[in-house]
C-alpha cells in the first residue's frame, strides 16, 4: 500500500500539486486520471523521490519515504518498478542486459540463473527471443513491454506506470493494459497507472483518483465513476472519446 498525505509541490513559487491525500491499495490497479498538465507525472515523481515534495509525506507500507536518508530510500526503491512515459531503456545495453540490470546489481544470481529470469520476464510480456536486440531496433510498443519486463525483474511490491499506453495503437494499448492487470493480480503488487485514456479505466481499473488542477478532484471505484455528480469529472469523461 502506498499512501500520500497532503503532498504539495511548487516550482518557482507556482504550486502544481495542491495537497494530495490518497491511498493506493495492494493487489489492485489504481488509476490516476486527469487531463494533460494537471500534475499526474509530478505526483508520481514525488512518490518515488525523483522530485522532492515541498511538503507532505509519502508512505510505503508505513515507511515514511519522504523522510528517509538516501541509503534507506535506495532500499525502498529496490521494491519499486517504474515504467517511464518515454520508456527510458538503457540504449547502450541490449534488451537482455536491460532486463538483467537490477538482477546483476542486487542479486547473487549466476549468469545462467539471470538468463532464465530474463527469459521468464520477457515471456511474461509476450516478447520472447529479442534478447540480443538493442532498444533502438524495436518498436515503441515493444519498448514499453520490455520496460515492463525490466520493472518486474526483481520481485517488486510496487509498480508505477506513467502513461503506459500513450502513443500506442489501440491493439497494443489494450495488450499493455491486460498485461499490467495480470501482473498486478499474479504478483499481488500495488500498481499505479497514470492515464488519460478512459478505455483503460473501464477495462482494467479498480480504484480511481481524478487529479484536477493539482487537487484531488474525485476518488472512488471505477463502477461509480459514471454516476458521479462531480461536474469537472463528468466533463472530463464526456470529453474523452469513450462516450
Amino acid at each position: 500500500m502506498i499512501e500520500l498525505k497532503d503532498v504539495r509541490k511548487s516550482f518557482n513559487g507556482e504550486e502544481v500539486l495542491k495537497g494530495i491525500s490518497t491511498k493506493f491499495e495492494t493487489g489492485k490497479v489504481n488509476l490516476v486520471i486527469g487531463s494533460s498538465g494537471h500534475g499526474k507525472s509530478v505526483m508520481m515523481k514525488c512518490m518515488v523521490g525523483l522530485l522532492t515534495p515541498t511538503s507532505g509525506n509519502v508512505f510505503y507500507d508505513d515507511r515514511d519515504f519522504t523522510n528517509l536518508e538516501y541509503s534507506k530510500v535506495r532500499e525502498v526503491r529496490k521494491e519499486i518498478g517504474m515504467l517511464f512515459q518515454g520508456t527510458a531503456l538503457f540504449d547502450s545495453l541490449t534488451i537482455e542486459e536491460n532486463v538483467e540490470f537490477t538482477l546483476k546489481m542486487f542479486t547473487k544470481m549466476s549468469k545462467a540463473e539471470r538468463r532464465d529470469r530474463v527469459d521468464f520476464c520477457l515471456e511474461q510480456v509476450d516478447m520472447p527471443g529479442i534478447n540480443d536486440k538493442y532498444p533502438s531496433e524495436i518498436s515503441g510498443g515493444m519498448q514499453k513491454r520490455v520496460g515492463i519486463a525490466r520493472a518486474i525483474a526483481l520481485d517488486i511490491k510496487y509498480l508505477l506506470c506513467d502513461e503506459p499506453n500513450s502513443g500506442l495503437d489501440p491493439v497494443t494499448s489494450r495488450l499493455i493494459d491486460e498485461l499490467l492487470q495480470s501482473i498486478t493480480e499474479e504478483f499481488n503488487i500495488t500498481t499505479i497507472i497514470n492515464t488519460h485514456d478512459m478505455k483503460t479505466v473501464f477495462d482494467i481499473g479498480d480504484d480511481v483518483i481524478f487529479i484536477y488542477q493539482g487537487y484531488n478532484g474525485w476518488t472512488g471505484k471505477v463502477k461509480d465513476i459514471k454516476h458521479s455528480d462531480n461536474e469537472t469529472l463528468k466533463r472530463f469523461i464526456q470529453a474523452s472519446q469513450f462516450d
Binding site: L50, Y70, R77, K78, M82, A88, T102
Partner: peptide, 16 residues
Amino acid sequence: MRVSEQIDALEVMGIN
C-alpha cells in the same frame, strides 16, 4: 541519459 530519463530510471531502481 539525463534527458531521456535513463538516469531517473537508474535512481528509481535504487542505484546511486
